[in-house]
Design a protein around this nucleic acid. Sequence first.
DNA 1: AGTTGCTGCGCG
DNA 2: AAAGCGCGCAGCAACT
Length: 582
Amino acid sequence: MFLLLAAHPDGSALQELTADGLPSPGNPHPRIISRTAATAVPENPGQSPTGLPAVVRELEQRRPRWIWHRTQDWYPALLEAGVELERCYDLSLSGAILAHSEFTAHTPYAQRAEKMTQDDDLQQPPRVLQPPPPPADQGALFDDPGLQSDLRPTLGELRAEYAAQQEAVAHATTDGNRRQRLQLLLAAESAGAMIAAEMQHAGVPWREELHEQILADHLGPRPPAGHRPAKLEALTTELRRLLHSPALNPDSPQELMRALHRNGIEVKSTRQWELKESTHPAIEPLLAYKKLARLHTANGWTWLDAWVRNGRFQPEYVVGGVVSGRWASRGGGALQIPRQIRGAVHADPGHKLIVADASQLEPRVLVALAQDSTMAEAARDQDLYAGIAAKGFGGDRAKAKMALLGAMYGATSGEAGRLMPQLARTYPRAVGFVEQAARAGEAGKTVTSRLGRSSPPPSERWFRSQQSTSAEEQRRADSIARSRGRFTRNFVVQGSAADWAACWLAELRRRLRALRADGSASGELVFFLHDEVMVHAPDGAVESCIQAIEDAANAAKELLFGRIPVEFPVSVAVVDSYDNAK
DNA sequence: AGTTGCTGCGCG
DNA sequence: AAAGCGCGCAGCAACT
């Protein structure tokens, strides 16, 4: 059962097509079961239980797969109206993957996308994939209706786009396994889009009074707008005295640098790690100032006012926001909640926060990708780095970790660089795998994650540098190539880890929904950060939620790699407060 | 006055 | 001058 939706998200001119399939190579003319056009504009937008949400809720009982241009255009308003959906296909996110995937590179779909980026200076994606016009919150008076209707995909365009994507997948490659992986990626990405909207809707439980207490403890009472808090003011006074600079603004790197130089502190920048080299008495208060100033500007009272409402922090997640497949976020720095203020993240009464993270995900993904059985043996340990250390770094865990991270990031110098030969001797397959990705990237080739997300083509700079003639230009070209090599080296690992995490998340959502459908108590996904999830659950649901998290992790492993002897353990903490999670 | 880029630091 | 990967954001600096 498939449903196509074509309408503006305000619900006007909803068109629904119900068919036994969608146009595809094997089924070019699907049997149409019913077709309706509902004009479903709520009379009181946002309040009326009728209109679009009611129509969608009705149709959801048939358990369709909703196919829409962008989940973000539809789903938040539906959630707001209390309508949760089971599954969807996000044309925009899927199209972006298919347009660049090495698995579909030979298909007309990808070639059309490539042609468009070549022809078009603005590098615009296919028309149907363009972002919608900006939100019309100023009212229709200020909108250009012609422009809007031009950008809004019609039912016909959605059908054509879906058919083109299906065909691209069908012809992905003769390797059926790759086709399955790509299909899995599209499903996981679409599920991710729904989860992102649901998590934004739910929000992270945030106790404002606990946050304010942390701020008061560190910074003093809340200052008037535009003023430094008491503790920062005191440190500023001290710094001015110690550095003999009565007007110093410690927030200005230039002023600060000059003041440091005048006092014989010869630093090339004002970064923490460089300042730590000096033993001058001004350094300690300066570092303290920087720490507190960061808290004040990034997560202080202003942040609290802007981002926390009614006990919830509701950031916007940007699925597909990173080329590797990781999520990005917009507003509030959702993916950078500092440890310092995690104490403000607190479960509701009668609830717990279940914080789970995939331990050492990226090196484990590398083991699986490279099928390095020697490293797999070391990874049987709950602590992979300790396992590696025991087999060749004299038991020095810190060294083993640095070597492995260096291999995944492309370290060439420093201690990590020096450790590389030793790592390569013991684990030639794992190291060879990332080395090969690096060589490919240097040569301008693309690399691809486990499920089929490919790296972007080389930059314009890379192409230009290829025509270098002089020795000087050649050095520059080599540097650009090596830089791209480090990117593609990391891409295969980071991208495949993102594949794993997307499957983990989708599988977890399915299980949490199943619990709820059973009538059991269930938790709610409220946060996701690359390799970590947070579930907010009633006390009685904690055990079943933990089980769901662990089952989902196993399912993700098998979906990506099949049954292989590599563990992907998750560490789970059940806490009231996020700062007790790690 | 508004825009763009840089510096520095938070997270994985 | 080169530099281990990927991000977002605030405030300063340098402009138009």
